[in-house]
């Protein structure tokens, strides 16, 4: 799967879970840039991403991403 394609899909999931139509994610986006991305919504984002991409993350992976780019890389490594 193309990296860009993954990013687009991840963006759509964030828009849906965080109820924020105007959200535009880039590789360097962090939780500091997205107000509603916190420990609670993170869980729901992870669940939706697992479902959307038909993958599973390990306990460590869930804690490890510092920005969207790292999340996308992690998804790419599983596809």
């Amino acid at each position: 799967m193309e990296r860009n394609e993954i990013l687009k899909q991840v963006n759509a999931i964030f828009v849906d879970i965080l109820d924020n139509e105007s959200l535009v994610l880039t590789d360097s986006t962090t939780a500091n840039d997205v107000e509603d991305w916190d420990s609670l919504t993170h869980i729901h984002l992870v669940v939706a991403i697992e479902k959307g991409f038909a993958i599973r993350f390990s306990s460590q992976e869930i804690q490890s991403w510092n920005n969207i780019g790292e999340l996308v890389d992690c998804i790419a490594s599983k596809k």
Partner: peptide, 14 residues
């Protein structure tokens, strides 16, 4: 402990 709870939460919602 938070890492445990997060992982268990993901399983719970699945």
């Amino acid at each position: 402990m938070i890492a445990d709870v997060n992982y268990e939460s993901v399983q719970f919602f699945q």
